[in-house]
């Protein structure tokens, strides 16, 4: 009896002590202020501290390179060389390619050459305001993604064309961080770059990450929760950045066609896609397109799932995430969008 009891107790004790000391379930966190937002990085496993250190350096490097408001950034230099070909880094080229693809597919609802309009509205400063209609009309003539020409590793912006990567750089950065973590041997991590969420693998215990989708009507609440792994989850919404003037609210997502904040009947769009940069660009594109045209985009090109919140209080999810997304805020009604086009 005693002989059996001792080894049994040994094993039991060891097993109980194991999970508490396991390196794989240990997490390290860091908070970084960059790209005009706050970033929260959580990495699990023995490589966590080294990975966070490398991540911080990468974030600052990309911020310096991709900002359209920092004078010495690669983007500012490209804007300054408009009219002639300029060699650009692979980092910039990848984002230009993704941007232009989304621009073409969305028929110009997404356009990184929107910078003259953004500056006119002052959305890249702390003093946004409604510009005169005449100035909007002249700025809008400068917005045309077809004037961004790529040739090998060089780019030529048309005369007067100015780009901003505000709608893709954070997603590109989260993708870069996830790639970096994977190369360093990290199996489990989640980053949130000002609400651009991207996850590597699952949680250390193998369960899926629970990503809350912010409620546009009550930004301290959640519309619902998405259970997911190895993907980016990016939300664009008019509630995120706005100003009030003469009793009217103006949000920051401008429609390149009208020059005014997009009025598409949506309050937010969430994209679930393995590619962080594409997810970021698509969230803006589909917000501008509105639910029905966005659903058409999804049916035509696929490669992602989406959740649309409409201004009449409904939530619609594409059928690929049926079962993964659950409502938490019961004042919303949840519908699904199917590939065949039949609503539910």
């Amino acid at each position: 009896m005693k002989r059996k009891l001792i080894p049994a107790l040994c094993i039991l004790t060891a097993l109980l002590l194991l999970p508490g000391c396991s390196e794989a379930s240990k997490s390290s966190e860091s908070q970084i202020f960059a790209m005009d937002t706050v970033m929260s990085l959580t990495v699990y496993g023995p490589e966590a501290n080294a990975a966070l250190k490398a991540a911080a350096a990468k974030i600052y490097e990309l911020d310096d390179r991709l900002s359209a408001t920092k004078k010495d950034s690669e983007v500012s230099k490209l804007n300054a060389s408009a009219g002639s070909y300029a060699a650009v880094s692979e980092t910039l080229m990848e984002q230009l390619k993704t941007s232009l693809e989304v621009s073409k597919r969305s028929g110009g609802a997404y356009d990184i050459s929107i910078r003259p309009l953004v500056s006119l509205w002052g959305f890249d400063t702390s003093s946004a305001h409604v510009p005169p209609a005449s100035e909007i009309a002249s700025a809008i003539k400068l917005v045309d993604y077809r004037k961004i020409e790529l040739s090998g590793s060089a780019v030529r912006l048309g005369e007067g064309t100015q780009i901003t990567l505000a709608s893709i750089a954070k997603g590109y950065t989260s993708q870069t961080l996830i790639n970096l973590f994977r190369e360093m041997g990290v199996k489990s991590a989640v980053v949130s770059l000002g609400g651009n969420v991207q996850a590597l693998g699952t949680k250390p215990d193998g369960s899926k990450w629970r990503v809350g989708i912010q409620d546009p009507k009550n930004p301290s609440g959640l519309v619902g929760i998405l259970e997911t792994a190895d993907t980016a989850v990016v939300t664009s919404g008019g509630y995120q950045r706005y100003f009030d003037e003469n009793g009217k609210r103006y949000h920051h997502i401008l429609d390149p066609k009208t020059g005014y904040p997009a009025q598409s009947g949506l309050t937010s769009v969430t994209i679930v896609c393995p590619d962080g940069a594409l997810a970021d660009a698509l969230s803006t594109a589909l917000f501008v397109l509105g639910k029905d045209r966005a659903a058409e985009y999804w049916r035509t090109y696929g490669g992602f799932e989406a959740i649309f919140i409409t201004d009449d209080g409904n939530a619609y999810a594409t059928e690929g995430i049926k079962g993964a997304f659950s409502l938490r805020e019961t004042s919303y009604r949840l519908g699904f969008i199917s590939k065949s086009g039949a609503g539910q």
Partner: peptide, 17 residues
């Protein structure tokens, strides 16, 4: 400056801002 409450309300991250 950031102030947060740990535990996160049952979620690992929030998409939206």
């Amino acid at each position: 400056v950031m102030i947060r409450i740990t535990g996160g309300g049952g979620v690992d991250a929030v998409a939206g801002r």
